[in-house]
Write a protein that binds this DNA or RNA. Structure first.
Lengths: 211, 211
DNA sequence: ATTTGATTCCATCATTTGATGGACATCATC
DNA sequence: GATGATGTCCATCAAATGATGGAATCAAAT
């Protein structure tokens, strides 16, 4: 039973998929309330009716975008886990930072969407919160911060969140941060990776935890 | 020449100040496009006309909110600098984390507004970006990452940003993160402080920087 | 008491926005 | 070629939204 979303992904040039892509970009740029159905339709070059025909209400389309995003993140985390399986924690962290940075810098929509969906008080999508919680639990286990997915102490989740947010912020904030750093795109990506490793590696890899 | 904003702050019960406070809360909750002038007026218990009479266009009111926020942050940073003057870096960081966390957790509007204003593509307020840049430069100098405010290398700004964003994220994301950690408000604040220190202190206080 | 200025609300407008009904087109199947 | 299903657009609606004009209210000064 392929969902409408899966079908859309199977045919990336289908109208339904094109609408989803445009919606994702615009919602990422301006947030839910900052985007009108007419903006999305115009981005695709179609009439509003066509948009409603494929996706129903604006709210439904937005939720489809977030579901799509959640799937994308899950896929990426699985990919990372495959890359670093069995490696020591320091390597795992380095690779995870590199891969997630590369991905989010090439898909800044994703980073923006994540911020909007997490921090806006809109917050209708309780199902996606469960996915996010699972993602965090998986990372916590992978980092050796929790014995298993079902028993993740608050401290472990908090540490994973700190790492996660750091990466997402630098990706989503490029428009503001890069002019401040006064570097080009490539240098920004390099500085961000270096900074994240500078901040995160010592905390998680030192031999004797303090206090 | 006291600005309208300063006058409003001098009389916190004035209509103008009450409108500003309500606007700040609502813009923080729902973002610029998610708030209508009617919502703000209703929150204050007045007519829309009264709102426009005092603050003009919606856009002007929003910019006043952001200016107010910028002043608040500057004040807080000065306060912190006074508290830790002359202390070693480790103490500076700990105090800064404690004070900023306490402040932002008691003023979550501020944290939300900061996120919205930094990451939304709206981004009209170029003057406030300059203030933010100055704040970062001051912190960089205070942390010994730059020789003076005029010469802050990209790496230094990036590190300050990493610290800054971490604090703001935990404050703004309480609604989503606290249920995930499954703790009450007080415990959340404690875990966040502990986590931030766990992450940040080793990076900036170790004796022999790696790589 | 009158004047003056500041403040607030009511009524209203023009535009925007989400959404829908129905006409037209395309195309596979019979 | 007729038929039905699918997809697209045009015209339009009702509600929401930003904004304003003008009347009413109030307080202080004259």
């Amino acid at each position: 039973m392929p969902t409408a979303l899966e079908k859309a992904r199977q045919a990336p040039d289908s109208m339904k998929a094109r609408i989803l892509t445009a919606a994702r970009k615009l919602f990422g740029d301006y947030g839910y309330h900052g985007v009108t159905t007419r903006m999305i339709a115009q981005e695709v070059g179609i009439d509003i009716s066509t948009l409603h025909y494929h996706w129903g209400e604006k709210q439904d389309l937005y939720e489809a975008v977030l579901t799509d995003l959640s799937d994308e993140i899950r896929t990426k985390l699985v990919e990372i886990e495959g890359l670093v399986h069995g490696k020591p924690l320091e390597v795992r962290l380095e690779v995870a930072i590199d891969v997630m940075c590369d991905h989010l810098f090439n898909n800044s929509d994703s980073a923006h969407l994540m911020l909007f969906s997490h921090f806006a008080k809109n917050r209708i999508t309780t199902e996606l919160d469960a996915h996010f919680t699972r993602h965090l639990a998986n990372i916590a286990v992978a980092m050796g911060l929790a014995p298993d997915k079902a028993h993740v102490p608050p401290q472990a989740n908090a540490r994973v969140l700190a790492v996660w947010n750091s990466v997402v912020n630098f990706a989503a904030g490029e428009d503001l941060f890069r002019p401040i750093l006064n570097v080009d795109r490539q240098a920004y990506l390099a500085v961000v990776k270096e900074t994240l490793k500078f901040i995160l590696l010592p905390a998680f890899t030192r031999k004797a935890p303090q206090a």
